[in-house]
């Protein structure tokens, strides 16, 4: 009872702070100076129509690199906490009971290729319209999750995924260092020609960085999901 009282007091006081925030908030009528300079500079200097991807991969590219490192640490941490003995041999007769029903299997067989195509489209169109590396990587991981749920015999090759994500991460840093050597600074995207505004191969290194980010995030989330499966006893 006392615990509920304390909880109510904590939530109530935080609610008072939030109420003062919400009441004192008024919509802004024009962009703040930093945002206005970003909106003006991204089409001009970087040649990317999507302002948010330009910010994420060039002006705030260092935050993206840090976030990639955080994802890697999380994958390692989950692998450490959930590590069990590797299953020796596959008992194929035991899997009969937890196979998914036919409706779900048929639906998954139709949906998984569509999900993969859609994820590739989101990643590669990151600089032209809404999308980018993170979003596409999450969609790939949802496709892998669907396959894991529906086909219990599906074993994604964990070594291949780990090697793929490590290479993608290393290439990301190498592209950044190449920006340091040949263009303005770390993770500058002008190492490749800017190309025509709005074309598919434009905006310098941003499509390459989007693709690497998508591969890395997708592999990472797939590895995390694979660790959560129950091991066969």
């Amino acid at each position: 009872m006392i615990q509920r009282l304390f909880a109510a007091a904590a939530v109530g006081s935080l609610g008072l702070v939030f109420a003062s925030l919400a009441v004192g908030y008024s919509e802004q009528y024009s962009l703040r100076p930093l945002a206005e300079s970003y909106v003006r500079l991204v089409p001009l200097e970087l040649g990317a129509p999507n302002v948010i991807t330009g910010i994420l991969l060039t002006y705030r590219g260092f935050d993206t690199l840090g976030e990639v490192a955080v994802l890697f640490m999380v994958a390692a941490g989950v692998g450490l906490v959930l590590s069990r003995q590797p299953a020796r041999g596959r008992a194929s007769t035991k899997m009969r009971s937890d196979e998914a029903s036919e409706i779900v299997r048929t639906g998954a067989e139709i949906l998984v290729p569509l999900i993969c195509i859609f994820a590739a489209y989101i990643i590669m169109n990151g600089h032209l319209s809404a999308g980018g590396g993170f979003q596409g990587g999450a969609v790939i991981a949802s496709g892998v999750l669907l396959t894991l749920l529906v086909f219990p015999q599906y074993q994604p090759n964990l070594e291949f995924l780990s090697i793929a994500e490590s290479i993608a991460g290393a290439l990301f840093v190498l592209v950044g260092v190449a920006g340091l050597i040949t263009a303005g600074g770390f993770l500058d995207n002008r190492i490749f020609p800017l190309g025509q505004f709005g074309a598919f191969f434009s905006a310098g290194a941003i499509p390459l960085l989007s693709a690497l980010l998508g591969i890395k995030v997708g592999c990472e989330l797939s590895v995390i999901l694979e660790r959560f499966r129950p091991q066969k006893r």
Partner: peptide, 17 residues
């Protein structure tokens, strides 16, 4: 129409299981 009925079917089977 593809995803909504399939996902609820899977959930109902899991709840039955």
């Amino acid at each position: 129409l593809m995803t909504n009925p399939i996902s609820s079917h899977a959930l109902a089977r899991a709840a039955y299981g």
